[in-house]
């Protein structure tokens, strides 16, 4: 009986494996990925390579010919003062925002992870701004940060402090955009951290409590070390995301003002390609941007590649 059954099972398994491999089945298997693959090749993979090709040309959208100019776009870019300003501003904004978000979101995550009443409500409020579009967020914050009529300055004056020229002062505009972005986005890393915090087993905290550790010590010696992978992950992904900032300066500072003090790489890309229709130069900007981001990604891989699995 037992051998009979095992033979039947073995037979069907064998048969099944064979039928899966017949050409007819292989072809139908392709049907599952084919629609996606066509779109992927057209709108993702092809354009990635085409982008390099365009960047090697003096590609003006309205011109009849697009002459090949080799690396001239890249050479010009390296000598282009605006590019360096845009790069500096983007990096400044990205680092500032990511550092604040990485730390602040962790603090808030620990506050709303504690077993207190109403913590679901606090989580709800803190994540709410994340669902707004950058357009809505930019409009709201540019009105709040208005030097003359903004409510932030209204409260500052009310407390007897001098008004601040948030978006009008060239030295303050990027920190101001950063502040607005932290308001808008910190709920996201907060939730990422919450997932990490819930993965820390309770018995570690119990053991520490039995040993007489205070709250600060448990945070310092248990939570932070065990959260290091999450902290690195949040920081690098935040850095990559905020380096590509566009909407905030586009909406809040009229596309990078005052002057060029909040002019970012993507704003430069946007204006080059869609104001001046210099597609070749724009493509070179995009490729250079991608290289910077690739650099961040490699750092991310290095960090995570080296990190061993944490054993509790």
């Amino acid at each position: 009986m037992a051998t009979e059954l095992s033979r039947t099972q073995g037979h069907t398994a064998h048969q099944r494996r064979r039928t899966w491999r017949t050409p007819m089945y292989t072809l139908t298997n392709y049907l599952f990925i084919l629609p996606f693959l066509i779109l992927f090749a057209t709108f993702v993979a092809g354009p990635i390579f085409y982008s390099f090709w365009i960047s090697l040309h003096d590609w003006k959208i309205l011109a009849r010919e697009q002459p090949f100019i080799g690396l001239a776009n890249y050479i010009n870019l390296m000598r282009d003062g605006i590019w360096w300003i845009a790069l500096r501003n983007s990096l400044y904004f990205a680092f500032l925002t990511s550092i604040i978000n990485t730390i602040f979101a962790l603090v808030v995550a620990m506050l709303v992870n504690a077993p207190i009443r109403g913590r679901d409500f606090f989580r709800f409020v803190f994540y709410a701004p994340v669902v707004l579009s950058v357009a809505a967020m930019g409009i709201i914050m540019s009105w709040m940060m208005n030097t003359q009529f903004g409510i932030i300055n209204y409260f500052l004056v009310w407390f007897g402090l001098p008004p601040v020229r948030w978006l009008a002062d060239p030295n303050l505009v990027i920190p101001s955009l950063s502040l607005a972005t932290v308001w808008w986005g910190f709920g996201f890393p907060m939730v990422i951290y919450l997932a990490g915090l819930q993965g820390i087993p309770d018995h570690l905290y119990e053991a520490a409590r039995i040993d007489g550790a205070n709250t600060w010590q448990t945070i310092r010696y248990i939570t932070i070390p065990l959260m290091m992978p999450s902290i690195f992950f949040v920081f690098v992904t935040q850095l990559i995301a905020h380096f590509q900032v566009f909407g905030q300066p586009y909406i809040m500072t009229g596309g990078g003002g005052p002057g060029r003090s909040s002019y970012t790489v993507i704003i430069y890309l946007y204006q080059t390609a869609w104001r001046y229709f210099l597609m070749g130069y724009g493509a070179a900007i995009a490729v250079a941007l991608a290289l910077v981001i690739l650099f961040f990604t490699l750092i991310q891989f290095r960090i995570f590649g080296r990190r061993s699995v944490i054993e509790y």
């Binding site: 993702v44 982008s51 990559i240 941007l289 990604t297």
Partner: peptide, 10 residues
């Protein structure tokens, strides 16, 4: 790994 901005122009 390639950021989406690269594909905007193409």
């Amino acid at each position: 790994m390639v950021p989406g901005q690269v594909t905007l122009i193409p």
